[in-house]
């Protein structure tokens, strides 16, 4: 099947002046630009009654992503889910919140299981059935890294979606390779000279994915749902290995108010800590610009896991985090030039 790059409304400047432009889920003044999450007939792939915490960003991100994928495949979709919150809260035996064929792998092998599922459909000649693997940051970027790299390297026809909430949430908030510097987790307590997680650790899996030269890599954020939808649509229009990392706040693990999930995600976006970009065959093809003004302060302030950063004597931590945001802004040329 030919890979085609689709054109999506989220990229259109035309509606910007119309009240909320493309910022809200829908814009009644510009019907053409409504997103799937505003449609009464969206599939709700992750059904009500799941046991995610109040305000769970991961549950929301997963519904947005899988609803979109279902829309692009006419429902011919199999989802392979690594162990983690998303699996545990959606499918406590004997109930499941999934309204699509769904299989639970192990914690670290979702990419391998999904590769197998995709190959089996190929061999059966059912190339219309598409496969998505998904997991948390622990299952994906730590224990799942080997299987994931294999899936990329063999260019398996799988879209892997990582819901990054920056720690092992399901087992009680332990540090992962995605936990940011200074963040408090159960294993990086805010004590001693370097409270919280150490700086200078961790890795960028989107960049690692790009280094595999796979057809499509993207970062997304639940605070920009139209962009997330557009990226999943684009990924689903391509054959081969694809990777999307979605930034999803965790009220429990981050110590945020359950009502602030989207707000916190938006703050992360606006201060430059979580750049949104797309890459095709190893090269960056698009970067979402941000407005110039916000510092990391507001973002960190909303979260108890960073409370110690604002204590006297820890100013260097705040500066270090700002430096990371500044480096992103430079590296990705994030700020809109006026």
């Amino acid at each position: 099947m030919q890979s085609q790059i689709l054109h999506f409304p989220a990229k259109e400047a035309m509606i910007i002046g119309q009240q909320t432009g493309d910022r809200t889920i829908s814009n009644r003044l510009a019907d053409t630009a409504d997103s799937l999450q505003g449609a009464a007939e969206r599939s709700n792939a992750l059904d009500s009654g799941h046991r995610a915490c109040q305000g769970c960003g991961e549950a929301l991100g997963a519904r947005h992503a899988i609803d979109t994928a279902l829309d692009t495949t006419d429902g011919e979709l199999v989802v392979v889910n690594a162990t983690g919150c998303l699996e545990v809260f959606s499918t406590p035996y004997p109930q499941s919140a999934w309204r699509t064929p769904w299989i639970h792998s192990l914690f670290g092998n979702a990419a391998a299981v999904a590769s197998g599922v995709a190959q089996s459909f190929r061999i059966q000649g059912k190339e219309n059935v598409r496969v998505i693997a998904q997991g948390g940051d622990g299952g994906t970027t730590d224990i799942g890294m080997g299987c994931l790299s294999g899936m990329f390297e063999r260019n398996e026809d799988v879209l892997y979606i990582c819901y990054n909430n920056e720690a092992y949430m399901n087992t009680g908030v332990q540090r992962s390779s995605q936990t940011p510097g200074a963040a408090r987790t159960a294993t990086t307590m805010p004590v001693g000279e370097h409270p919280g997680n150490r700086f200078g650790t961790g890795k960028s899996v989107p960049k690692i994915a790009m280094a595999h030269g796979i057809p499509y890599v993207a970062t997304a954020n639940i605070a920009n749902p139209r962009d997330l939808e557009a990226k999943v649509r684009k990924a689903m229009s391509i054959r081969g290995a694809r990777y999307i990392e979605v930034f999803v706040p965790c009220p429990l693990g981050w110590g945020t108010a359950s009502c602030d999930t989207i707000k916190v995600a938006r703050q992360a976006l606006n201060c430059g800590l979580t750049p949104l970009y797309e890459a095709e065959y190893g090269e960056i093809t698009a970067v979402n610009k941000i407005a110039p003004s916000e510092t990391v302060g507001a973002y960190l302030k909303s979260q108890r896991r960073f409370a110690h950063v604002f204590k006297r004597g820890n100013e260097h931590q705040l500066e270090a985090i700002q430096a990371i945001a500044d480096a992103n802004i430079r590296a990705f040329d994030l700020v809109e030039s006026k």
Partner: peptide, 14 residues
């Protein structure tokens, strides 16, 4: 104004 934000952002489809 029916921007669908509540509908689209509810993690529980409620």
């Amino acid at each position: 104004m029916e921007c669908d934000n509540c509908y689209g952002f509810c993690p529980d489809n409620a």
